[in-house]
Write a protein that binds this DNA or RNA. Structure first.
Lengths: 110, 110
DNA sequence: TCTATTAATCGTAATATTGCAATGTATAAA
DNA sequence: TTTATACATTGCAATATTACGATTAATAGA
């Protein structure tokens, strides 16, 4: 149906899925990588950097902002975006609980 | 359009997005967590464990298997699934390059 | 005030994802 | 051979996502 049955999973499972979904598109990966690389605010040039139209970039930025992974500050006519490092490390902790499950488990069978 | 323009991104960005997309659904998160928790093959009871219909689970398993994150072995009439720990740690390395970008970056601006 | 600039929002088309009933396939047991 | 069991595949309906043209909103500068 295109609709995930979130109510049958734990909050933790749904939260992991939400963050992962944000990283599930190369444009959002590229946006985040660019924000890390310049290590400061980006005012405006994201549309030139990534090769997508302005409304499309704006939409991706909105999703990332909604998740709290980036911050946006208005500076005159442009908006400056950067990583929210605090929320980023919180996200990493949640993802690590999931990704590091292989630690101390031996290859069981198969 | 619903179609990601993968050709305008790097292979690395697309690979990160592919793995992330796999974790972008709570059912797949739950399946993987269950496989880790029992730390051995699961033959059959995944449909009972997760609360979705058999064809739905089968479809999610297919995606995870296609990415190489799980292995499936036929045992009689049932099929046993488990984590492919080797591929899992390779996936973790790729994801870490992305997730750990915040290390040694100071909170620049905003 | 008028105009240019920048980015958000709206509307919409194209494609992808999710979920499941129905069906198919393969193996084991009777 | 027949039947039961377990899982994959098919087909389809409902919803989500992606992309972008057109428009709107907000600010800066002339």
């Amino acid at each position: 149906m295109g609709l995930a049955k979130t109510e049958m999973f734990t909050d933790q499972q749904n939260e992991i899925a939400l963050f992962a979904k944000a990283f599930g598109h190369p444009a959002r990966v590229a946006i985040l990588q660019h924000l890390f690389n310049i290590n400061s605010c980006v005012c405006g040039d994201l549309v030139n950097e990534i090769g997508l139209a302005q409304p499309t970039i704006s939409q991706h930025l909105k999703e990332l902002k909604h998740l709290g992974l980036i911050k946006g500050n208005v500076e005159g006519t442009s908006v400056c975006y950067c990583i929210d490092t605090k929320n980023w490390s919180q996200m990493k902790q949640i993802m690590s609980l999931f990704l590091d499950q292989d630690i101390e488990k031996q290859d069981g069978c198969c």
